[in-house]
């Protein structure tokens, strides 16, 4: 999807890094709740859970992006809307909903080829740099990895090898 003009994002963290996700992709934010593990699912899939009558897949972003730095408990779940379906993404903290001016977003950032599809850009917010992610892509990019696709990927997940500099 293409974002123009001022962008409203939901700020969250995984490890030491500040991330953002466009508010349009987010249905809601929840505290982590118990999940039912799914046998044969990829390692970054925690399992499934019942969200007000709707069964959703919960995945661990840290594991998905192969992030090893920093600490985090994955206490929050950001529910990403995907059409009628939804996916729960485990993040460490969700801090706020903020608005970033278009000018403050660098959209052309050379990162690893694998992350090219997921990273919208890097936004300046005060002193902080925020990696703005398209979480719908991170889920849909590897359909085979999703439990609803019934396939497990043996491939290693793509990792941001180097943080894009400003």
């Amino acid at each position: 999807m293409t974002v123009t003009g001022d962008v409203q994002i939901v700020n969250f963290t995984v490890g030491d890094v500040d991330y953002g996700v466009p508010v349009e992709q987010v249905r809601e934010v929840r505290d982590f709740q118990a999940v039912t593990p799914v046998p044969g699912a990829p390692s970054y899939v925690e399992g499934v859970t019942n969200l007000r009558g709707q069964i959703i897949t919960v995945m661990d972003l840290r594991k998905r992006l192969n992030i090893e730095e920093g600490e985090g408990a994955g206490e929050k779940i950001i529910v990403i809307e995907m059409g009628k379906a939804a996916v729960g993404v485990m993040v460490d903290t969700v801090t706020e909903v903020s608005t970033i001016a278009e000018a403050d977003i660098e959209r052309h950032i050379q990162v690893s080829k694998k992350l090219e599809n997921y990273v919208v850009g890097v936004a300046k917010q005060g002193e902080k740099l925020i990696v703005v992610m398209d979480l719908t892509k991170i889920i849909s990019d590897n359909d085979e990895d999703l439990p609803e696709h019934g396939r497990l990927s043996s491939k290693k997940p793509h990792v941001i090898e180097q943080m894009p500099s400003a």
Partner: peptide, 13 residues
């Protein structure tokens, strides 16, 4: 806080 966050998200949407 969570409620406020979700409210903010709803408001933004």
């Amino acid at each position: 806080n969570m409620l406020a966050l979700n409210a903010a998200i709803e408001a933004a949407r």
